[in-house]
Structures are given as C-alpha cells and as structure tokens.
Simulated scan of single mutants.
Amino acid sequence: MQRQKIELYAERTFSRKLSDTFDFLSENGKVLFKFLAYLLLPVSAVQALGMNFYAGDVISIIDNINATDHADFIMHAIIGYAILMLSIMTGAVLSSSLVYGLVRLYGKRQERLQGITMSEMRPVLLTNIWRTVKMGIVIAIIMTMVITLLAVAAVGLGEVAGLGNGAAVLTVFIGIIAVFACGIPLALTLPIYLIEDDSTLWESLTKAFRLGFKTWGGIFGVLFVIGFIVQFIQGVSTMPLYIMLIFKGVLLSSDGAATMVTSPAYTFGMYLFGVVQAFGMYVGYTIIYVATAILYGHAAEKTDGVSVERDVDNFEQMGDDNDDDMALFDSPKP
C-alpha cells in the first residue's frame, strides 16, 4: 500500500512538522542514502584524512610541548585543518543541494522519488550547487559586515559614553541577541532559493525574513528538537574516533604503548572511523535540511496560502489547455 504523499505546502501543528519530517525520511530513506553515499562518501574520505592530519599533529605538539621546534608539526596541522574545512564546506554545499533538489523533485514527479536516477538528478543538483555557493558568499559578506558594525559600534559607544569595556560588552550582547533573532528566519532562505523555480537570491532573503518572523517560534522549536536528535546521531558516529584520539594522546608518551598507537593498523582504524564520523555528520545535516523544507512549506502556506493560489493557477491552465467541443453546441435539438 502506497503512502499518502507529503505535500510541501500545508499548515502543520508542531507535532506534524516533526512527523512529516521523519515520514519523508522514512519514505525516501533508500534514495537519500544512495545519493548521499554516491556524493558524500568521497568527501568524507578526504575529510577524514584532513581530520587525522590535524588531530594527529596537535597531539604531537602537545606531547612534545617542551621541544624547541614545532614548525613541521604546525605546518602539517595547518594543512590538515585547511583540508578539513574545505571538505566540510564542500560537503555542506553538496548535501544541501542534494536534499533540497530531491524535495523539489518529490513534489513534481508523479512517482515521487521512486526510480529516480543520477542523470535525472544531475541538472537540478548542478543548479542547486551554484545557487548554494552564491547564497553562501552573500551571507558570508552580510555576516562580516554585521560583525564589523558591531565592533565599530562597541568601540564608538564606549568612547562616546565613557563607559569603557562595559559599553562594549553591552553592545556585543545586544548584537548577539539580534543576530540570533534574525538567524532563525534566515534558515528558510536556502530552501526558498533552491526549491522555488522563479525565486531570485534577494527575493529569497526578503521572503525568508517575512515568513520567518511570522513563524519564528515554530521554527525555533522544531529546529531545537531536531538539533538534539542530530547531535545524538553525530555523537554516536563521532565517539569511536574520539576514543581512539584520546587513547593516542594518553598512550603516546608511554614507550611501551607508543608503538601501538603509531602503528599503520591503528592509524588506518582512525581513518576509517574518521570517514564514519564525517558521513554521520552529513546524515545529520540531511535531517535538518528536510525539517527546514517542511518548516518553509508550513510558513508559506500559513502566510501566503500557496497551495490555494497554485490550485487556482492550475485550474485556469486546465481551462486554457482544453478546447471546448463546439460540436456539442452545434448539434441539432431533438
């Protein structure tokens, strides 16, 4: 028996937002996992390499804290950290582009996501990747400007008011609250931009704020609950790697155990658990992206009545596409 289709644009209670999120994940779990494995496992493999380089060199620096020359360790750690950050950014772009693309196709395809192939997904994925990169650059610029303005305001207020550090702390505190309040609606920006065909970047930003502030509490509540679930999943996937890192840090100073934690087998085990940790992180991201798409659908329906508007447009389109059979009107009366 086929499940009832999950409509994106629908008003939902708090519990239904959560249930629709996990119903979508349950219905399309195999498709999501297949595409995640195809796109994110290679990224996870590189990310684990960077993580091991970075963590291993940091442990070595701490273990040899009294040494006079840490140049090699520091250089390796910087390279590892750069690989790690680039991998995370790449993975975030790919995972968000994939999930929102699948949500979009789920609503458009008669058979939903059943039988979807990478060739069918590729055009949507490439478009979403480019849009995600553009959105990321714009948001990074905006955040840089906000942080700069906060710093300037804190220093300026302190000098003008003569309150010194107290004014600076107060200004930064108020700024953090304002950024947090605006950051909740901002979560809707990417699903709007990637799901809606005709939405421009700036329209997506303004629409996200308009819809987000009207449904602020619901967005915060759902993401708060989802955040706990995601943290648990990511914690489980991260635990084996962290245990091995702790053992390496503790045992590295022991002459007898140092050989074991520096052996190729131990290093390879850390690498495999690093891949698990990275992939688990992207699985967690997937849950957040689906939840955010559901939140956007609720906000758009509650505020703009999108489904009603689309039903009217579809009705008019059906009338325009179907010619009247004039023979019915020209037939002779009995």
Rank of each mutant, 00 (worst) to 15 (best):
A10E: 10
G274E: 03
M270D: 06
V236I: 15
T68H: 10
K302W: 00
G29I: 04
V103Y: 04
G269H: 04
K248V: 03
V46Y: 00
S307T: 12
S263N: 05
I61H: 01
F213S: 13
V58Q: 00
I288M: 13
T144N: 13
L251N: 11
L39Y: 06
G107E: 04
E111Y: 06
Y9V: 01
A278R: 00
F329Y: 11
V290A: 07
V160S: 12
A291D: 06
V138G: 14
D72T: 13
S254C: 03
A168P: 12
S254L: 02
I141H: 05
L205F: 15
E11M: 09
A67P: 02
V124C: 06
L170D: 15
V146I: 14
M89L: 13
V58A: 03
L251Y: 03
L94Y: 05
W202P: 05
S204K: 02
A300R: 01
Y54E: 07
S19I: 12
D255Q: 14
D57K: 05
I137N: 10
V179F: 11
I147E: 11
G166W: 08
G91Y: 01
V99S: 00
V43H: 07
T13H: 01
T132I: 09
L39K: 03
R122D: 07
D69Y: 08
E27M: 14
L157K: 10
V31T: 15
L272T: 05
G158V: 13
D330Y: 07
M85P: 03
L98T: 06
T189Y: 01
D320H: 11
V236A: 10
G217L: 07
L328C: 06
I137V: 15
P264Y: 05
N165I: 15
L272I: 12
D23N: 07
V169E: 12
K207F: 05
K214C: 04
S95T: 12
D324F: 15
M118A: 13
I294S: 09
L272K: 01
T117D: 10
E7Y: 02
V172G: 12
E196A: 03
Q231K: 08
G249E: 00
Y289R: 02
A154C: 13
H70K: 09
L201E: 01
D63Y: 01
A258P: 04
P332D: 07
T200F: 03
G175H: 12
V169H: 07
P240H: 11
N52Y: 00
V43K: 03
A187G: 10
